[in-house]
Nucleic acid binder design. Structure first.
Lengths: 201, 201
DNA sequence: AAAATAAAAACGAACGTTCGTTCTTTTTTC
DNA sequence: GAAAAAAGAACGAACGTTCGTTTTTATTTT
């Protein structure tokens, strides 16, 4: 029923969000001015205020309906694998690749934490929790003996491990010796699956 | 020989850095004004420029000689343990506890990434590398069969895993169900040591 | 040890910009 | 033709920085 013709009003609103989004992920919130947003949206400065009450309102709208989280996490649900090992390996590669397709994600996330003290994180998490938990259920139902780990802890460890992999890959990738980069993702997967120790556990 | 009397000049310089540090970790760089810094340092606005050429110069000085990294990482060298397992367990707890004692660390790090695009990270890393690598050497010399993992990858996985634990603990600690918090650190340690799978690896 | 002198630091007003927001007018949209 | 949106000038406040002056500090000369 919807999806037909986005009204003019709606199109301008989206143009503003587009412009603001691109500026904010590049320079942060405080360093982005309403004049830049206006120019990016092809609008006069005052025109923005017909759509948003304030600068902060623009940012809130971005967090609420443009956060890349909402695109990245669902991707994990489409990951395949018969065994736990296979699944984890695929999921790790998929997630890191997907993060690579959304370089904005990191910037937006950090901007929110730094400039808004992470006040939107609970909202983000509330939305993401229902997306993430089915994944945990799926993993525990796959072939392969898994240690008894509470599913939330499992998911947190998975996301944390490979998210940190991605961040460090970006941040220090070029500053580091080559041997720290090569195939590092597969090492991470192995550690996550089997630990750093050899032998029974 | 030194350590005697910090000259007056040096004392004001430190006062400026103190004030700027506290403001920046709380509000970020762009949101911190030179007037706030001056007031915090008990100085007139113009006085700052007798010690620093610009606002950015103040930030650079903070990164270069006040970054909490330099306090946190060396702590790991004092961690004890006869076996790999023991050592890793102690190191994880020590690091998380130490991060807890430096809540500023996270803010400063993120501010640098967001507002300066991480341009100081290579410098940070260059300094930290010599501190970190001996640690990796130590681990590999302990009792306990370790899988063959390049030491840099090992360190990166360790730091990433427990750093991400700390971040998520802070960010979503209160927004999450209790069972995701309880003893989660020990689960992380177990996963790091033994992986999520049961059996030989 | 005291006084004189040169250098450095602190002051605080002021500069030119830029900021977020408001307001009135004109134009577009339905 | 009524209502909404765009325009753009204008507002006051805040920004980083500069500047001339005064005060403090450190050094040298009596």
């Amino acid at each position: 029923m919807p999806e037909e013709a986005p009204t003019k009003r709606e199109r301008t609103r989206q143009a503003i969000l587009d412009a603001a989004y691109n500026l904010i992920v590049r320079q942060g919130y405080a360093a982005t001015s309403m004049r830049q947003v206006a120019e990016g949206a092809g609008l006069a400065l005052g025109g923005i205020y017909n759509h948003f009450a304030s600068k902060e309102e623009v940012f809130r709208a971005i967090i609420e309906d443009r956060h890349p989280f909402y695109q990245i996490v669902p991707i994990l649900n489409s990951v395949e694998g018969e065994t736990v090992e296979e699944f984890v390996r695929n999921a790790a590669h998929t997630m890191v690749a997907e993060l690579g397709h959304h370089p904005d994600f990191l910037n937006l996330m950090l901007t929110e934490i730094v400039e808004f003290k992470g006040e939107h994180v609970p909202l983000l998490f509330e939305r993401m929790f229902p997306m993430i938990m089915p994944l945990a259920q799926r993993i525990t139902s796959l072939d392969g003996d898994m240690r008894q780990i509470p599913p939330p802890v499992l998911m947190r460890a998975f996301l944390g491990m490979f998210f940190s992999f991605y961040i460090t890959e970006i941040l220090i990738g070029r500053a580091m010796p080559k041997d720290m980069q090569f195939n590092a993702l597969d090492y991470f997967v192995d550690i996550f699956l089997h630990g750093i120790l050899v032998g029974r556990n």
